[in-house]
Design a protein around this nucleic acid. Structure first.
Lengths: 247, 247
DNA sequence: ATAACTGTTCCACAATATGGAACCTAATGA
DNA sequence: TCATTAGGTTCCATATTGTGGAACAGTTAT
């Protein structure tokens, strides 16, 4: 089903990148202009794409967004974790994130926002690198040895701040302690202004299926204050894990 | 491109409804089992769908969610409105919603959540009926006459509470005042526990492109308190409209 | 004015999806 | 226990359907 696959590639391109015309898309995806025109007609008729009347370029519509949202909303984990996350948000007035580990990245699927003017705000759906975030380290620490090895080979450990761990040897040492302690910290490793703490959620089989974090601006969330979040977040994730049948 | 369209229908079904197997999907979408199997293979290979190892049923993955999110995040309106919405949220400690009008429904595309225990929480991406919500009335009030007529014909005015307006005549009278006053109120029309106020955002051409609302539990947000939100929300939407070139 | 590029339509041909049949496994029930 | 049903999967000859070159029109650049 080559053409169907191509049509999905067209849709993905329009979702991720800027609006584009027939010719641009046809050269980028190696499809003849006439075929691309047909693909775009189909996508338009199905409501996934629309043609801007002024520029003549095609762009993705919010139908894709709505479909995606309904997928997200079916995750029972979100509804289960929500009240706990809100409780934590009210308690500390910092942003609480719930995330999954998808294709070597952390994906934020829900959050409770701090109402402070200065606060952390990864948008929902945002993909974050794993090796330098608290959430990510929780997932990496609980990978099978071969999987972690594979991750280290595939992932370039780019430095975002001078604290970012860029050697896989050092990373593995860090992860060992994350595994033993049951929580992870990101002390300005992805951004000089951010500190974050995270702990794992496990399902009935003990597998780490998600992670929750508390993150805040480093000016307000000192290392000391961050560490004071440790017990509450570990208790919270343990409680959610218990509801998933763990322990 | 019949098959491509069918594949999209399969994906939509799996996004909206429960996980399903080959046979169920093939009968629901009038596709032979062997073809459905092929469709699902394609969707699986492209990462949109996955087969649950235990139940054998197929369900949509978060790839769809991520695609949708990236469409949403490209809307400049969201980034423009954000700081204003947050300011309003901090001021009143009630939920602020930003919405669009899509296919006769209100679609919430962003929000600032109240941190109160009791508060309103339509999830992002949620579709709400227009005729009985403050957001919706703002949009309906600014439709062309024929469009409103068409809406009234198509939409069944279902009663959610005893205050829900169910006659199109009465609705039109309400909308007239919304148009004249420049804001709309929902006084427990969709839920006995909710009050809400909303005002329109206009682009350079004067067209209503979005609406913002403040909503809260009726116990805390009395009609009087709701009305005190009127000036702030009108000023706010006027300011955003001005940035879009209006006025 | 010319050239270059883009969007769109058309059509004969070639590629590819279709759907019936058969096979396998798991679940159901007599 | 064995028969029966239902669902998942593979295969293949046939016919439907997508392909891509060509041609035209509209737009912008030279």
């Amino acid at each position: 089903m080559r053409s169907t696959i191509k049509v999905f590639q067209v849709l993905e391109t329009l979702c991720m990148d800027n609006p584009a015309g027939v010719a641009e898309l046809s050269s980028r995806l190696a499809v003849k202009r006439s075929s691309m025109h047909r693909f775009l007609s189909v996508l338009t008729h199905q409501g996934y794409v629309e043609k801007n009347a002024n520029t003549g370029k095609y762009c993705a519509t919010l139908k894709v967004f709505q479909l995606g949202v309904s997928v997200r909303n079916k995750l029972s984990l979100i509804h289960l974790a929500r009240p706990y996350m809100e409780e934590l948000g009210r308690k500390f007035h910092e942003t609480i994130n719930l995330s999954l580990f998808i294709e070597n990245s952390v994906v934020v699927i829900d959050r409770v926002e701090s109402l402070e003017t200065l606060r952390i705000d990864h948008g929902i759906g945002r993909r974050l690198p794993a090796y330098c975030t608290a959430l990510g380290k929780v997932f990496l620490a609980n990978l099978a040895k071969e999987e972690l090895e594979k991750y280290c080979e595939e992932q370039k450990l780019q430095a975002f701040t001078k604290r970012t761990v860029t050697s896989s040897k050092e990373l593995k040492r860090d992860l060992k302690s994350v595994r033993e302690e049951g929580f992870a910290i990101d002390d300005r490793e992805v951004d000089d202004g951010i500190r974050c703490i995270s702990a794992p959620i496990r399902d009935g089989s003990g597998k780490v299926v998600a992670a929750i974090s508390i993150s805040g601006p480093s000016t307000r969330v000192t290392l000391q204050r961050l560490k004071s979040f440790k017990r509450p977040i570990i208790n919270l994730t343990a409680e959610i894990s218990r509801k998933l049948g763990y322990g």
